[in-house]
């Protein structure tokens, strides 16, 4: 992995992901290891994402490295019309690793081709967000003891949710059985189903969450946004059907854990928060450990 960029979830192999997850376990036990001393990590956020940025910067700081960068495009030279290429070439001179978030799809791949240092994609528009996927994998393994042979139920906006697409792609390496619960308009796209079919894995589709929830080892909730619907009436009709509340957890498996990429709006009622099956806040914390492990691996430390 040394000196390689991570742009898309398909860039690394199953074995490489497992190595990163194993390494993250070490950072969870002992988060403060000053192995990045003397290294500079640039965090270039062309669109604001406080949660992701703080997670990366916390990871760098706990490793003893330094952070340079900006937190939104208005404070970068892009606002003066500089091309992404020029910004990346310049920043390459000042840093050992670039972490980039950008609203334009494919920008991270382009940056990784231009930069003389490795690039980690922290989200490129609706395309990829591989470190979210890594932390999801880490959390699933942490709660289930394994990544193999699990029943994963995805709920909500499966059409536009990039975290869902990446996670489905990644889990096809681990013999998962997939259950997709969504309104008809927001079904998983066929471009993602291809990966499941290639591996000859099973998947089922539902419009009613109650039909799938009893089978779940992992329940992965996502938000449904009004602007995704071509028909507002349809949104009004379905919006409450994809909200999880504590009563719905009756009779579910003991090992069930509920994940959500956060921030949530109302798709998980607050009465779920106190359930031992709710795991979304711990999930977010894992982001720091997997990002530590990823950066250490890429920098060859």
């Amino acid at each position: 992995m040394k000196n390689r960029s991570l742009v898309s979830i398909t860039d690394f192999s199953r074995e490489e992901y497992l190595q990163i997850l194993d390494r993250a376990v070490e950072f969870e036990k002992n988060p403060n290891q000053r192995i990045l001393q003397g290294k500079v990590v640039a965090t270039l956020f062309f669109e604001p994402s406080t949660r992701t940025r703080l997670s990366f910067e916390s990871a760098v700081n706990r490793l003893g490295g330094r952070v340079i960068g900006f937190s939104d495009a208005s404070s970068s030279s892009t606002s003066k019309g500089e091309s992404l290429k020029d910004t990346i070439l310049t920043v390459s001179n000042y840093s050992d690793l670039i972490v980039m978030r950008h609203p334009i799809e494919g920008s991270a791949r382009w940056a990784s081709e231009v930069a003389s240092v490795p690039v980690i994609n922290a989200g490129d528009g609706a395309n990829q967000h591989p470190t979210q996927c890594l932390l999801d994998l880490y959390t699933i393994r942490q709660t289930q003891g394994t990544l193999e042979n699990l029943n994963i139920v995805f709920v909500g906006d499966l059409k536009y949710g990039r975290t869902v697409h990446s996670l489905v792609q990644a889990l096809t390496n681990f013999n998962a059985t997939f259950h997709f619960v969504s309104p008809t308009e927001l079904k998983l796209p066929s471009s993602v189903k291809i990966y499941i079919k290639e591996k000859k894995l099973e998947y089922y589709q539902y419009t009613d969450i109650n039909e799938a929830i009893q089978k779940a080892d992992i329940l992965y909730m996502t938000r449904i946004q009004r602007e995704r619907f071509s028909d507002v009436m349809e949104y009004e009709r379905v919006k409450n059907s994809y909200i999880l509340n504590a009563d719905m957890l009756n009779g579910t498996k003991n090992n069930l854990r509920i994940l959500h990429p956060l921030p949530r709006v109302n798709e998980i009622s607050t009465d779920v928060d106190s359930s031992p099956k709710a795991y979304y806040f711990q999930q977010a914390l894992n982001g720091v450990f997997v990002r530590q492990a990823l950066m250490a691996s890429i920098l060859g430390l």
């Binding site: 992404l84 334009i104 494919g106 920008s107 609706a126």
Partner: peptide, 14 residues
């Protein structure tokens, strides 16, 4: 041309 208007190739000379 890439069909996706939000693709980087439609925003920079690539």
């Amino acid at each position: 041309k890439c069909f996706n208007p939000k693709c980087i190739t439609n925003h920079e000379a690539i």
